[in-house]
Each structure stands twice: as structure tokens, then as C-alpha cells.
């Protein structure tokens, strides 16, 4: 499991092994400040980081 969160200290505290930095509490995989295409690029890059974490040793 890879956990995407913008509150990584809590994920680490409880022992989550594959933590991926999310953007914000209100949108872990988005950013309302970006235009839709840029936002999707951001989301893709976060999901790809999560996939990379799943492929890698924790």
C-alpha cells in the first residue's frame, strides 16, 4: 500500500511504510489553483509516485 496524504507526519507516526506527499488536506491529488490540464498533470505525477513506491522496497 502506498498512502497519499498532505499530512505526512501522521502517516509516518502510525507506521505507514510507503508515504507519498499529497498536495493539500482539501485535495490530496489536486490543486484548485491550477487550470484543469495542469491539475491533471499534477495528479498523474502524484499517482505515478505512488506506483513507483509500490514497485520499490519500503
Amino acid at each position: 500500500m502506498a498512502q497519499v496524504t498532505a499530512v505526512t507526519p501522521v502517516a509516518r507516526m502510525v507506521g505507514s511504510n510507503r508515504v507519498v506527499q499529497g498536495k493539500g488536506i482539501v485535495y490530496p491529488l489536486g490543486d484548485a489553483g491550477l487550470d484543469p490540464e495542469e491539475e491533471k498533470d499534477l495528479r498523474r505525477s502524484i499517482v505515478k509516485q505512488a506506483l513507483e513506491a509500490l514497485r520499490s522496497e519500503a
Binding site: V7, Q21, G22, K23, G24, I25, V26
Partner: peptide, 8 residues
């Protein structure tokens, strides 16, 4: 307190 981790 922040929403974005960068801000935190």
C-alpha cells in the same frame, strides 16, 4: 495550520 504540506 496548513492544508498544503509545503505551507506546513
Amino acid at each position: 495550520a496548513a492544508s498544503l504540506e509545503a505551507d506546513r
